[in-house]
Design a protein around this nucleic acid. Structure first.
Lengths: 357, 357
DNA sequence: CTGTTAGCGCTTTCAT
DNA sequence: ATGAAAGCGCTAACAG
């Protein structure tokens, strides 16, 4: 056997519960008991087992244990991809919380996969539950089907029956930035982003509209662009060309906002004098660019952590009703909105670890 | 049973090979055969099995399969954390390649874990091999011990016996940037970064020295700072205060370089006129800052992909000798080094996906 | 070509 | 308190 597919590895097999039992001179049941922390074991056997296990550096094989206990002690996470700080932060929050809960995390990136639903189904095969981004390009039906057999939590997704949800607050903060810009005397605001692209952006646009309502103004329809630098550049060009008119831009994310700012300046327009620009996410560049980008910071890490928590509750807990949690965001005012430049200095955030090893 | 620990889930169990066999009116062996693509099955049974499996949406339980075949079809990846584009790109490269190879990826972030070696050992329990960053704070002994029982590939780590290695080229490119800066007539260069922090930086410093040698100059000793913005700010302060003297700074990464640039300017010094600054990684901000940051771009994605490849080869392949692959890097010249500003425009790279859902 | 059967390593009754 | 034994779901001989 093991001729064709199996790994003809040069690597030894590793201790099993049998080898530990043998070494300790007890039955495998006893070994299992002490390792499971069962009460019913004499101090003596416990000691012997512990020692034997230690000497053999024994760690139970996950697959065997999973099969026996019928769960995996692993959380699945499905993300579209990983560019920019958003997903990374989310992942960090998710991973650390999961680890605290004793769960491994199996990561799957949807982008580039040819058959995502199939990949998700396969993932489901090795985890106890799956958290995924609302817009991971997973068909709704796949999600609900999955939700029927495994716990699923949707991150930044629409509320769905039979599925838990976590999201950052969007409408109120959108309303707040928009009002702030309006407060600077701007009247011709444009919202850049496609509300149809997902609940986050939809809600941000809703806040944009609400702020206009508050001010007795009419909000312009959204300019449905993708959240990428190239689209920001193109958007700025339309402004420069006169295809579009605005004295302020509320962009659905920073990448967009940043690209717009740069292109606008290249085109001879001043930010914020000619047009104010605000974004979403507070990426690193937002602090470095001049003028500093006013933006909405989302507690993305926290979002990931909550997702891991919810998943775990749903997996272990009983039939609590499905929740839809919302985490508050935070407006970061710099000067691209029209506010005077802040302190001369550039406040680097608290220690952020290195990137290169 | 299943009263205490097991997930008292409201979620159905899912089809097993038995239910499929029963539905198809064949034995479980036949089901296994057709699902494994075995030759020896009649067209008729194959069809029935396929149909039954389809109807039941059957996907074999990973744990059961793993136990039987004695491997996991999963790669482990250990990273220190995920801030900045470096690790994210690495992870993306790793994940996609792993997926192409039919491997799941189990991710573990070392940062914040109290007992990393233990966590790694646990990880080893559910994967066929582990790729990890050279400087993931994993003790050498843990690595080699691990390497004894499972394939291990070190990313950007030191060549180690019994372990494969992938890394980006460092010395030559460091030599190249340094020579470039020297070519601008700068003579008082300083290298910012701690060579003792890992092979990458050590090699970069080596290239820095080599370039000086080439020019018949003596290289200054390195300024051992961590690769973080706050340390960059502090470094700039030392320069401004006169504690340190330099007309050019070769920084071991962009975060450092960027923070230095900003603080230098705040302190009244001009970049590059008074002091030239170059970095490593080509982060997004490097393109946005003024002047544009000259930097070395590493093929990080490729690095991740190669790691996944190597791991897979080592897992499935026979006893090929341990390799130490080096992937070439690429110098990106902008104007922080003293070169005239390039094209007025700001070349956004090809479509980079959105960050916010 | 197909069914029977023996494990894979571990947990968990059930006796003792 | 401890051991024997029965699975968990799947693969892979081994007989037919």
């Amino acid at each position: 056997m093991a001729t064709s597919s199996g790994p003809p590895t040069r690597h030894p097999a590793g201790a099993t519960i049998y080898s530990v039992a043998e070494r300790a001179g007890v039955s495998i049941a006893s070994v299992s008991r002490v390792l499971q922390g069962s009460q019913a074991v004499s101090e003596k056997t416990r000691a012997r087992v512990l020692q034997a296990a230690e000497e053999l550096r024994y760690v139970p094989l996950a697959a065997a244990r999973s099969l026996a206990v019928r769960h995996h002690e692993a959380h699945g996470l499905v993300l579209p991809e990983l560019s920019g700080p958003y997903y990374s932060e989310l992942l960090m929050g998710f991973e650390s919380r999961a680890a605290e809960l004793g769960q491994s995390v199996v990561l799957m990136l949807a982008q580039g996969k040819k058959d995502v639903p199939q990949a998700v189904r396969k993932l489901a095969t090795r985890v106890d539950g799956i958290a995924m981004l609302g817009s991971s390009a997973i068909p709704d039906e796949t999600v609900t089907a999955l939700g029927g057999s495994k716990p699923v939590v949707l991150i930044a997704g629409d509320q769905t029956p039979a599925v838990d949800t976590v999201r950052a607050e969007n409408t109120a903060s959108a309303r707040e930035v928009t009002a702030h810009v309006l407060g600077h005397g701007r009247t011709r605001l444009l919202f850049a982003g496609d509300p149809a692209a997902g609940p986050d952006i939809r809600d941000r646009y809703a806040g944009f509209v609400a702020a206009h309502d508050d001010a007795g103004l009419d909000a312009q329809p959204p300019v449905p662009v993708a959240l990428r630098e190239d689209e920001g550049t193109a958007l700025a060009d339309r402004l420069l060309k006169g295809d579009l008119d605005a004295d302020a831009l509320v962009c659905a994310n920073d990448e967009l906002a940043l690209a717009v700012m740069v292109r606008l300046r290249e085109g001879g327009l001043s930010v914020p004098d000619d047009v104010a620009v605000v974004g979403w996410d507070d990426v690193m560049t937002a602090r470095y660019v001049v003028p500093g980008l006013t933006t909405v910071r989302q507690p993305v890490r926290e979002l990931g952590a909550r997702a891991a928590d919810l998943l775990h509750e749903r997996i272990t807990g009983s039939a609590v009703p499905h929740s839809a949690q919302v985490i508050p965001t935070h407006l970061v005012i710099r000067s691209s909105c029209g506010c005077p430049p802040t302190t001369p200095t550039h406040p680097a955030p608290a220690a952020r670890p290195r990137r290169t090893p």
